[in-house]
């Protein structure tokens, strides 16, 4: 790791702190780096700051202090920087957040046309290809409310991928799903990881983490408790806090 230059890290998070009104510190003095093509899974009890950290990475939350650099671009007060980063970082939400008044196809076309300035034909071509990848091309003209949760989340992934992001962030992508739909979403994410996508995933899916993650970060109280390969974290956790958490979710 020491021979890796700064260029190899697509995300650097340096001493980031974020607190909410009322003084609760969601993320405390957090430092971490993510390499290109790396899949990082963040775990931890609820309220440990996982989601806040993730949301800081594409500017949905503004850190109180510390620095975040994504692919050489600092995430700071400069709006141009923030927009540039948002175009390179895709995000998938727990609640899908599809646009309910648009068809599936229009959901995926929108940013391509508005941000990438593609024509409708160019955008549609890519959108249909993405829908084929996530396995629901037949729902292109359906509206989100007509789809199951699993299907909606797959559309949301396709929508984020439409911008050809360099990094994908997943904020508990399967937590709002019925159990029988979790795998169809995890399968899409597995394929994405195998394809070399850099991913930061907040999830409690141990199976997924074990299989796909290069590294697991265990967080509590807004800080890293322990980090390592899935094997290290799941088989030989060093910290008592990690052990307790794992025993609860197993």
């Amino acid at each position: 790791m020491s021979e890796a230059g700064a260029q190899d890290y697509i995300i650097t998070i340096d001493r980031v702190t974020k607190s909410y009104p009322g003084g609760i510190e969601a993320v405390r003095d957090f430092t971490a780096r993510v390499r290109r093509r790396e899949v990082v899974v963040i775990m931890g009890p609820s309220g440990s700051g996982k989601s806040t950290l993730l949301r800081c990475l594409n500017g949905l939350e503004r850190p109180d202090s510390g620095a975040i650099v994504v692919d050489g671009v600092p995430l700071d007060e400069d709006r141009a920087h923030r927009n540039e980063i948002r175009q390179e970082v895709g995000m998938v939400f727990q609640q899908f957040n599809l646009f309910p008044h648009m068809t599936v196809l229009d959901n995926i076309n929108l940013a391509q046309m508005r941000v990438r300035r593609k024509t409708r034909e160019e955008a549609t071509e890519r959108s249909l290809a993405l829908l084929r990848t996530v396995g629901i091309v037949e729902k292109a003209s359906a509206y989100p409310a007509q789809l199951s949760g699993g299907q909606q989340q797959r559309v949301a992934i396709a929508r984020a991928l439409a911008m050809a992001p360099k990094v994908m962030l997943f904020d508990e992508p399967t937590s709002a799903l019925d159990p029988e739909m979790i795998n169809e979403v995890l399968d899409v994410m597995r394929d994405l990881a195998r394809g070399g996508m850099t991913m930061v995933v907040v999830t409690h899916e141990m199976g997924f983490a074990r299989e796909v993650a290069d590294r697991v970060i265990f967080m509590d109280g807004g800080q890293i408790v322990e980090t390592g390969t899935p094997a290290e974290i799941f088989e030989h956790p060093k910290q008592e806090r990690t052990r307790r958490f794992l025993s609860q979710i197993l």
Binding site: L60, R86, M91, N97, H101, A111
Partner: peptide, 30 residues
């Protein structure tokens, strides 16, 4: 409107103007 609509639009890199025009107003007006 749920704030997730704003967040989804912003995370796709849409500008505030585009977000209002394509995402927020069509739903709000309905």
């Amino acid at each position: 409107l749920h704030r997730g609509q704003w967040e989804a639009a912003h995370s796709l890199g849409l500008s505030t103007l585009d977000t209002y025009r394509d995402v927020i107003l069509p739903q709000a007006v309905r």
